[in-house]
Structures are given as C-alpha cells and as structure tokens.
Design a protein around this nucleic acid. Structure first.
Length: 286
DNA sequence: CCCCAGGTCAATT
DNA sequence: AATTGACATGGG
C-alpha cells in the first residue's frame, strides 16, 4: 500500500484489501452513504470526508496529510495486514468461502462514544431505521459541518438530556438507554478514554454497566471502537449463519460465542464481519 | 391487523 | 441459572 498527497487529495494506491462498499456496508457503521457509483461520503471524528474508488486506488477527497495521519489512517485500520489475516482464517474451508464475498472489508476504529450510542440504538431494530435515528440525533444535537452534515453530539454536549428531549429522534424504548449512557459518560462515572487501557474482559464489564448495553452491544463496541478483534459479536444474522454452517457446535447462543473464538481464533471478530456481510449478501448460503 | 427488526431488562420459574 | 414477555417505532 502506497500513500501520497496529490493536490487536496490523499491517494491510497494498491489497496487490494480495501473496498469501500464492503467496509461501509458490512454493518459496523451507520453514517456513510454512497453518493455516486464510486463515491462515499460521511462523517467521523467531526470531519466530513468523501472517498472515491478508482481502479486499484482509493482517493480521500479534499483532505490533507495531517488529517490522514491523525484520523483516517487509524480509522480505516490501514496498518493492519488483512491479507495475512485472511490467509490464516482461510484454513477453515467454510469461512474461506464467506471471506471471498467480502475480501475488501476492514474493521473501522470508530469513536467509542458514537459506537456506544449507535449500538444501543441498534437493539431490536433494522439497519435503515438505525441510520435514520442516528441521523436525527446528529441533526438535532450535533454541530453543523458544511451544508449537509452534522457532527455526532458528544456526551458532554448532551449532558442533562431527558427522554422527552430525545422524542424527535424516534428512538422508542431506547431513549432511556441513551439517557443513561449520557449520564454515566458525561459525569465521568465511565471514562471511555481510560477504557482504552483496560483488558477486554474489564472493558466489557465497564460498558455493561450502562443500561441498554448487554453482551452483544458490548462486543460490538469492543470490536468497532476499541479494535478488540478477539471478540465475536453474535446477532441474529450471525446466529442463523453459524447454525447453518456449524450446526453441531451451535445449539445455543452461548455456544455460538465460544464456537466463534474456538473456530477462528484471535481475530474471530474479523471473521465475524466476513460472515455478517456474506450472510446479508447471500442469505446465509455458502 | 399481524409480524418482525444487529437485544436488553426484569420478573418468574 | 434458564426462560419469557415487554419495550417504541415503522415497514412489509
């Protein structure tokens, strides 16, 4: 992978393990939209970014090397060697087929607060409506960024918010969970910055102190915000897929979680994303 | 009018 | 410790 600046763009050349559609469409994030055949646009860490695919390169539009180094390189997990991981995961012949439909997936390193709130909202919900609710949250409580975008409101900015204040975002029963997350994070009772330094089990317990954060939501935050690729979030899609692909090892939810770790090892979280993408693309059939 | 959607919580067994 | 229904909202 070769990276350089050209005018106001950052070029990522030879990006064979990086497909924008697969990365943004594998269910880990909710604020990127395709604006054109090859262009995606979205917001992360208070920055608006457009990206364009051009043959074997990806172009980050209207940005600079400083933002690339401080934000986007980490956000897109560009220092990780996905070829090596895919090769290792492919020793499982069943998983190998799932990988082949999402070879360009990368696990984003997203903002912990945004990820926490986003996956609270994801509970018993569908993806279009999750995106809708998050969009409304940003429009109502975030800062305008340019003409069409808003930042994700931080916890301190939401301090003191009530369920009633949140009614315009139509989050339903999840509103009270968002309020609890705001209270615990804005007060400092839970310090997401310090959480970075906790081991995975302690961090998971810490996150689950928040009402509305159970095991699955906690695992998603661990994977998509803290880069803990050793966790294996199990949602309905993964549950159904695992039961179809590994029926003898997946008779209940608890078994599926341990099966993920045992079958796929230290990077089972990445395997989970290939499976999720594959399941949604092909209806779970290998 | 029914069912379901990246689950979680609390009551009940 | 395992099981079960409620929880808001919108779309099919």
């Amino acid at each position: 992978m070769k990276i350089y600046q050209e005018n106001n763009n950052i070029i990522i050349e030879n990006s064979k393990d990086f497909c924008l559609k697969q990365t943004f469409d594998c269910g880990q994030c909710f604020r990127w939209e395709q604006t054109d055949d090859s262009v995606f646009e979205g917001v992360a860490f208070g920055r608006v970014l457009s990206l364009k695919t051009e043959e074997d390169r990806i172009v980050l539009l209207n940005t600079n090397m400083e933002d690339y180094e401080n934000i986007w390189a980490k956000y897109f997990d560009l220092s990780r060697d996905y070829s090596k991981i895919k090769q290792s995961l492919s020793s499982d012949t069943i998983l190998k087929k799932a990988i082949s439909s999402g070879e360009g997936i990368r696990i984003l390193r997203q903002d912990p607060w945004e990820t926490l709130v986003s996956f609270i909202i994801s509970a018993s919900n569908n993806i279009p409506r999750i995106k809708k609710i998050i969009g409304l949250l940003c429009e109502h409580f975030g800062k305008p960024l340019g003409s069409r975008h808003f930042s994700f409101p931080d916890a301190k900015g939401l301090w003191g918010i009530t369920e009633e204040d949140l009614s315009p975002i139509r989050a339903g029963f999840r509103a009270k969970y968002i309020v609890d997350a705001v209270n615990k994070v804005a007060s400092g009772e839970i310090d997401l910055h310090k959480c970075e330094f906790l081991d995975t089990d302690s961090l998971k317990k810490e996150l689950m102190k928040i009402n509305g954060v159970g095991e699955k939501v906690a695992d998603c935050i661990l994977l998509f915000a803290f880069g803990r690729t050793e966790v294996f979030p199990v949602d309905v899609w993964i549950k159904n897929t695992m039961q179809k692909l590994y029926p003898e090892k997946c008779s209940n939810l608890k078994q599926i979680r341990t099966a993920g770790r045992e079958l796929f090892g230290e990077h089972c979280g990445i395997a989970q994303q290939y499976l999720f993408y594959h399941a949604r693309e092909k209806g779970g059939n290998i």
